[in-house]
Amino acid sequence: MDENILDPDGARERLAAWKGRIDKLAADTQTMSARLQEVRVTVADPGGLVEVTIDSTGALVDLTLTNRMESTKPDVVSRTIMETLAEARNQLADRSQEIIAETVGTESPAARAIAESVGKHLRSGPAENAATDSGPDGDDDYESRSFLKKG
């Protein structure tokens, strides 16, 4: 029979070590939660038309429109807002995943599941284009193009 199983001192040491790991994980998880709740991300579109700020859940908490909006078609303004919001959420997902890695690490299945869940909740794929970068006549002026389109 294995002496370790019946060794009370060894069992106490293993139990104390396990409790220490659990206590550290609980503290790290609380730190992660507090840091995630504090995150805010602000992103401006490259054309200087809009700036959005989102909170830790990805909800829009501030929207600033510049006077450039007055000379821009409404559909371009709305598309730029939505694309800038999507970019802000992608940046929030990146920052949130950094916080998760810094606080609870990436080794445990639980930490990986949290990071994956955050990414799925916040990230958006490439912005869908209802319109192309340039107008129907190929005119690539400020009024008819999206400012976040990579090109």
Rank of each mutant, 00 (worst) to 15 (best):
D28E: 06
T103S: 04
K19G: 09
G105T: 05
D23I: 07
G119W: 04
R21A: 13
A34V: 11
D23N: 12
S71G: 13
A130K: 14
P74V: 08
I81K: 00
V52G: 03
I81V: 08
P74C: 09
A44W: 01
G48S: 06
D45K: 02
L36N: 00
Q91L: 10
A86N: 06
R123L: 03
R35T: 07
R89F: 02
L65H: 10
K120Y: 11
G20S: 07
G135F: 10
E143T: 15
L92H: 04
G119N: 00
D45Y: 05
P46D: 09
T72M: 04
P109L: 08
V43M: 06
P136L: 13
E143H: 09
T29A: 09
A44L: 03
A44T: 06
E128M: 14
L122T: 00
A26D: 15
S71F: 12
A26P: 07
T64E: 08
P109F: 04
S96M: 03
I99V: 07
K24A: 15
P126A: 14
D75S: 08
A110G: 00
E98R: 06
A111R: 00
G47L: 09
Y142Q: 15
S56E: 07
T42V: 01
P126W: 13
D139T: 15
S134Y: 11
E38A: 13
T57E: 08
T106A: 12
E38Y: 05
A27D: 08
E143G: 12
Q37K: 14
E83C: 05
G48K: 04
A59K: 13
L92N: 01
V77Q: 06
V52L: 03
E83I: 01
G58K: 01
T106L: 12
L65Y: 05
T57Y: 12
I100A: 01
E98H: 09
A131I: 12
T103K: 00
K24Q: 14
L65W: 08
L36A: 05
T64N: 14
I22N: 08
Q30A: 15
R112T: 07
R89E: 08
A113K: 10
I99L: 10
T72Q: 00
S56N: 05
N90C: 04
S33E: 15
E107H: 06
L49T: 01
V50L: 04
N129E: 15
E107G: 14
A113Y: 08
A131H: 14
A131P: 07
G20N: 07
D94F: 07
K120T: 10
Q91C: 05
A101M: 07
E128A: 15
G125M: 07
S108R: 04
A127H: 10
T84E: 00
T106R: 12
R123I: 10
N90S: 06
I81D: 01
L63I: 03
R68T: 11
T84F: 02
E98N: 09
E116R: 13
A130H: 11
S96W: 00
Q37V: 05
D55L: 06
R68G: 05
S33R: 14
D139E: 15
T64S: 08
D140W: 13
A34W: 09
A111F: 03
R40H: 11
A17D: 14
T64Q: 11
A93Y: 01
Q37H: 13
D45R: 03
R79V: 07
V43L: 03
T132Y: 12
A111T: 04
T57P: 12
T53S: 03
G47C: 14
D140I: 11
W18P: 06
D133R: 14
L60D: 02
D28L: 02
